[in-house]
Amino acid sequence: MDLNGKVAIVTGGASGLGQGTVEAYVAKGAKVAIFDLNAERAQAVIDNLGADNVAFWSVNVADEESVKNAVAEVVEKFGALHIVNNFAGIGSAAKTYGKKGVFPIEQWDPVIAINLTGTFNVSRYAAEQMSKNEPINDDGGRGVIINTASVAGYEGQIGQVAYSATKGGVIGMTVPMARDLSSYGIRVNTIVPGLIHTPLFESLPEPAYQSLEASVCYPKRLGKASEIAHLAVFIAENDYLNAECIRLDGAIRMQPR
Rank of each mutant, 00 (worst) to 15 (best):
S58R: 14
V67G: 01
D47Q: 12
Q129L: 02
I136D: 05
A251C: 14
I112R: 07
N189C: 15
I105A: 11
D239T: 15
Y25H: 01
M254K: 12
L3N: 06
G140E: 08
K167T: 03
M254S: 12
M177F: 14
G98K: 09
R221K: 14
A55N: 12
Y163C: 02
N121F: 07
K68G: 01
E73A: 15
V7S: 00
K220Y: 07
V151F: 00
H197G: 00
I196H: 04
E244S: 14
S150R: 02
K224C: 00
K77S: 11
T21M: 07
I90A: 08
A236G: 10
N53G: 06
D138C: 00
F56A: 04
S131L: 05
A236M: 08
I235Q: 04
V144K: 05
K167N: 08
I136A: 10
L37P: 02
W108R: 01
C217H: 10
I34Q: 09
S15T: 09
E106C: 06
A51W: 03
Y25W: 08
M130I: 01
A42F: 08
N86K: 04
T119C: 13
R124C: 07
G50H: 08
I171D: 02
F234Q: 13
V22N: 03
R247H: 09
T21L: 06
A30D: 02
A88T: 11
L17M: 15
V144S: 07
N38F: 10
L37A: 04
A149W: 05
N60S: 15
V26P: 00
G50A: 05
R41P: 03
L116R: 06
Q129M: 10
A30H: 04
A251E: 09
A70M: 08
L200N: 13
R124D: 04
L81A: 02
A225F: 07
D180C: 07
Y97G: 00
E65V: 10
D249T: 08
E134V: 09
Q43D: 12
A55L: 14
A72S: 13
I146M: 12
V144H: 06
R247W: 04
I171T: 06
A44D: 11
M177E: 05
N189Q: 08
V84F: 08
A236K: 03
G12I: 05
G118Y: 02
A70W: 02
V161M: 11
S183A: 13
L195T: 08
A33D: 03
S92L: 03
V111G: 00
K95H: 08
E134N: 13
M254F: 14
A27C: 07
A55D: 11
A165I: 03
K28Q: 15
V26N: 01
P199G: 10
G12F: 08
G18W: 01
F56S: 02
L248Q: 04
L222N: 01
L37V: 13
V188D: 03
E73I: 04
A39G: 07
S58Y: 01
E23P: 06
A162K: 04
